Amino acid sequence: MALAVCLLFDRRTDRLVRQLWERLEAQGVATLLTHTHGRHHPHLSYAVLRDGDPDSVRAALDPLANGGAVEVTAQGSVVFPRGRVALACAAPADVVVRQERVVAALHAAGRELHRNYEPGRWVPHVSVATSAVADQVPLVVGAVSDVLPLPLHADRAVVIETGTGQMWPLAGVP
Protein backbone atom coordinates (compact mmCIF):
# COMPACT_ATOMS: atom_id res chain seq x y z
CA MET A 1 0.00 0.00 0.00
CA ALA A 2 1.51 3.33 -1.10
CA LEU A 3 0.44 6.20 1.10
CA ALA A 4 0.91 9.95 0.90
CA VAL A 5 0.27 12.72 3.41
CA CYS A 6 -1.28 15.54 1.40
CA LEU A 7 -2.76 18.97 1.78
CA LEU A 8 -6.00 19.42 -0.16
CA PHE A 9 -7.17 22.73 -1.52
CA ASP A 10 -10.25 24.83 -0.98
CA ARG A 11 -12.93 24.79 -3.71
CA ARG A 12 -11.55 27.76 -5.61
CA THR A 13 -8.01 26.42 -5.78
CA ASP A 14 -9.22 22.90 -6.60
CA ARG A 15 -11.31 24.29 -9.47
CA LEU A 16 -8.42 26.35 -10.88
CA VAL A 17 -6.02 23.39 -10.90
CA ARG A 18 -8.66 21.10 -12.43
CA GLN A 19 -9.28 23.69 -15.17
CA LEU A 20 -5.57 23.61 -15.97
CA TRP A 21 -5.69 19.79 -16.11
CA GLU A 22 -8.73 19.94 -18.42
CA ARG A 23 -7.03 22.41 -20.81
CA LEU A 24 -4.00 20.16 -21.05
CA GLU A 25 -6.05 16.98 -21.49
CA ALA A 26 -7.90 18.68 -24.37
CA GLN A 27 -4.48 19.17 -26.00
CA GLY A 28 -3.50 15.52 -25.56
CA VAL A 29 -1.35 15.88 -22.43
CA ALA A 30 -1.98 13.32 -19.69
CA THR A 31 -2.68 14.86 -16.27
CA LEU A 32 -3.85 13.59 -12.91
CA LEU A 33 -7.38 13.98 -14.26
CA THR A 34 -6.99 10.69 -16.14
CA HIS A 35 -3.94 9.15 -14.45
CA THR A 36 -4.34 5.63 -13.00
CA HIS A 37 -7.63 5.40 -11.07
CA GLY A 38 -8.86 8.87 -12.13
CA ARG A 39 -9.81 9.86 -8.57
CA HIS A 40 -6.95 12.27 -7.98
CA HIS A 41 -7.44 15.59 -6.25
CA PRO A 42 -5.22 18.62 -6.72
CA HIS A 43 -2.87 18.44 -3.75
CA LEU A 44 0.45 19.35 -2.21
CA SER A 45 2.23 16.31 -0.76
CA TYR A 46 4.08 16.63 2.53
CA ALA A 47 5.30 13.03 2.38
CA VAL A 48 5.13 9.86 0.31
CA LEU A 49 5.67 6.73 2.35
CA ARG A 50 7.29 3.47 1.36
CA ASP A 51 5.42 1.53 4.03
CA GLY A 52 2.67 1.77 6.62
CA ASP A 53 -1.06 1.65 6.96
CA PRO A 54 -3.49 4.58 7.19
CA ASP A 55 -4.29 4.07 10.87
CA SER A 56 -0.65 4.05 12.01
CA VAL A 57 0.14 7.08 9.84
CA ARG A 58 -2.82 9.02 11.23
CA ALA A 59 -1.87 8.00 14.78
CA ALA A 60 1.66 9.32 14.21
CA LEU A 61 0.36 12.66 12.88
CA ASP A 62 -2.65 13.32 15.13
CA PRO A 63 -0.49 14.67 18.00
CA LEU A 64 0.91 17.41 15.74
CA ALA A 65 -0.57 20.84 16.26
CA ASN A 66 -3.22 22.01 13.85
CA GLY A 67 -1.43 24.84 12.07
CA GLY A 68 -4.50 25.88 10.14
CA ALA A 69 -4.71 26.61 6.44
CA VAL A 70 -1.59 26.72 4.29
CA GLU A 71 -0.90 29.39 1.67
CA VAL A 72 1.64 28.85 -1.08
CA THR A 73 1.99 30.50 -4.48
CA ALA A 74 2.73 28.73 -7.73
CA GLN A 75 5.47 30.81 -9.35
CA GLY A 76 6.55 28.61 -12.24
CA SER A 77 6.99 25.09 -13.57
CA VAL A 78 9.25 22.31 -12.45
CA VAL A 79 10.04 19.32 -14.66
CA PHE A 80 10.80 16.03 -12.94
CA PRO A 81 12.07 12.79 -14.49
CA ARG A 82 9.81 10.71 -16.75
CA GLY A 83 7.78 13.65 -18.05
CA ARG A 84 6.30 14.81 -14.78
CA VAL A 85 5.59 18.54 -14.82
CA ALA A 86 4.25 20.46 -11.84
CA LEU A 87 3.45 23.90 -10.54
CA ALA A 88 6.56 25.05 -8.65
CA CYS A 89 5.42 26.56 -5.37
CA ALA A 90 7.02 29.22 -3.24
CA ALA A 91 6.36 28.11 0.32
CA PRO A 92 6.78 30.30 3.40
CA ALA A 93 9.33 29.07 5.92
CA ASP A 94 6.58 27.92 8.30
CA VAL A 95 5.23 25.55 5.63
CA VAL A 96 8.69 24.00 5.25
CA VAL A 97 8.90 23.62 9.04
CA ARG A 98 5.46 21.99 9.08
CA GLN A 99 6.52 19.51 6.39
CA GLU A 100 9.66 18.70 8.39
CA ARG A 101 7.53 18.07 11.52
CA VAL A 102 5.36 15.64 9.56
CA VAL A 103 8.48 13.80 8.36
CA ALA A 104 9.93 13.71 11.90
CA ALA A 105 6.67 12.29 13.30
CA LEU A 106 6.58 9.63 10.60
CA HIS A 107 10.22 8.69 11.21
CA ALA A 108 9.55 8.50 14.96
CA ALA A 109 6.75 6.04 14.18
CA GLY A 110 9.19 3.91 12.19
CA ARG A 111 7.84 4.84 8.75
CA GLU A 112 10.12 4.95 5.72
CA LEU A 113 9.65 7.80 3.24
CA HIS A 114 10.51 8.26 -0.40
CA ARG A 115 13.88 10.04 -0.46
CA ASN A 116 12.50 13.15 -2.22
CA TYR A 117 10.36 13.98 0.83
CA GLU A 118 13.21 13.98 3.31
CA PRO A 119 14.10 17.37 4.83
CA GLY A 120 16.27 19.40 2.50
CA ARG A 121 15.10 17.45 -0.56
CA TRP A 122 11.40 18.33 -0.60
CA VAL A 123 10.29 20.50 -3.50
CA PRO A 124 6.81 21.95 -2.87
CA HIS A 125 4.82 21.29 -6.04
CA VAL A 126 1.37 20.54 -7.41
CA SER A 127 1.36 17.87 -10.10
CA VAL A 128 0.08 18.89 -13.52
CA ALA A 129 1.31 16.50 -16.24
CA THR A 130 2.05 12.88 -15.42
CA SER A 131 4.00 11.65 -18.45
CA ALA A 132 4.58 14.47 -20.93
CA VAL A 133 6.78 13.54 -23.84
CA ALA A 134 9.59 15.94 -24.77
CA ASP A 135 7.59 17.90 -27.36
CA GLN A 136 4.69 18.36 -24.91
CA VAL A 137 6.81 19.95 -22.16
CA PRO A 138 6.80 23.43 -23.79
CA LEU A 139 3.01 23.17 -24.14
CA VAL A 140 2.63 22.34 -20.44
CA VAL A 141 5.05 25.08 -19.37
CA GLY A 142 3.14 27.57 -21.53
CA ALA A 143 -0.20 26.56 -20.03
CA VAL A 144 1.24 26.91 -16.54
CA SER A 145 2.72 30.31 -17.37
CA ASP A 146 -0.71 31.51 -18.46
CA VAL A 147 -2.07 31.09 -14.90
CA LEU A 148 0.89 32.44 -12.92
CA PRO A 149 1.27 33.60 -10.28
CA LEU A 150 -1.35 31.33 -8.77
CA PRO A 151 -2.12 31.60 -5.04
CA LEU A 152 -3.01 28.20 -3.58
CA HIS A 153 -5.01 27.75 -0.38
CA ALA A 154 -4.91 24.35 1.35
CA ASP A 155 -7.47 23.98 4.09
CA ARG A 156 -7.36 20.30 5.05
CA ALA A 157 -4.98 17.34 5.23
CA VAL A 158 -5.46 13.67 4.41
CA VAL A 159 -3.67 10.37 4.11
CA ILE A 160 -4.21 9.03 0.60
CA GLU A 161 -3.73 5.52 -0.72
CA THR A 162 -2.13 6.50 -4.00
CA GLY A 163 -3.09 3.34 -5.86
CA THR A 164 -6.83 3.71 -5.27
CA GLY A 165 -7.44 7.33 -4.27
CA GLN A 166 -9.02 6.31 -0.97
CA MET A 167 -8.58 9.07 1.64
CA TRP A 168 -8.52 9.28 5.41
CA PRO A 169 -8.80 12.81 6.86
CA LEU A 170 -6.37 14.05 9.47
CA ALA A 171 -7.68 15.78 12.59
CA GLY A 172 -6.05 19.07 11.58
CA VAL A 173 -3.60 20.55 9.13
CA PRO A 174 -0.11 19.78 10.40
Rank of each mutant, 00 (worst) to 15 (best):
S127C: 07
V147Y: 07
T164H: 03
A105Y: 03
V147G: 10
L148P: 02
G38M: 03
R98D: 09
R58Y: 00
A105N: 02
G163V: 09
L8C: 04
H125A: 05
A65K: 10
L61R: 11
A30W: 11
V158Y: 15
D62R: 15
L3A: 08
G110H: 04
A105P: 00
L44K: 04
P63N: 15
D155N: 12
E71M: 10
E71V: 12
P81N: 12
M1N: 14
H41W: 11
V126R: 07
A90R: 12
D10A: 10
A65H: 06
V137R: 01
H114M: 14
L170D: 14
G120S: 10
A132T: 06
T31Y: 15
H43A: 14
A109R: 05
A134L: 14
G142L: 10
A26Y: 00
H40E: 03
V128F: 01
E161A: 13
V133P: 00
A47H: 05
A109P: 00
P138N: 03
E112C: 08
Y117K: 12
V158Q: 07
V137Y: 01
V79P: 02
V78M: 12
L87F: 02
A60L: 10
S45T: 14
G165V: 13
R84I: 08
E71W: 14
V173G: 04
V70S: 15
V103Q: 10
A4C: 07
A65T: 11
A26K: 06
D135I: 04
V79T: 13
R111K: 08
H40W: 09
P119N: 01
M1D: 12
G110S: 01
T34F: 04
R18A: 05
S45V: 09
V128G: 00
F9C: 11
T164V: 03
R98S: 13
S45G: 11
V97Y: 08
L87P: 00
L44N: 03
T34R: 14
V57S: 02
R39S: 12
S131H: 15
A134F: 15
V128N: 01
G163M: 08
P54M: 11
A47K: 04
E22V: 08
G28C: 10
V128I: 15
E71T: 06
N66P: 10
A132G: 04
V85P: 02
L33C: 00
R23V: 08
T13Q: 06
Y117E: 07
D146E: 13
W21S: 03
T130Y: 04
G83E: 13
V158T: 01
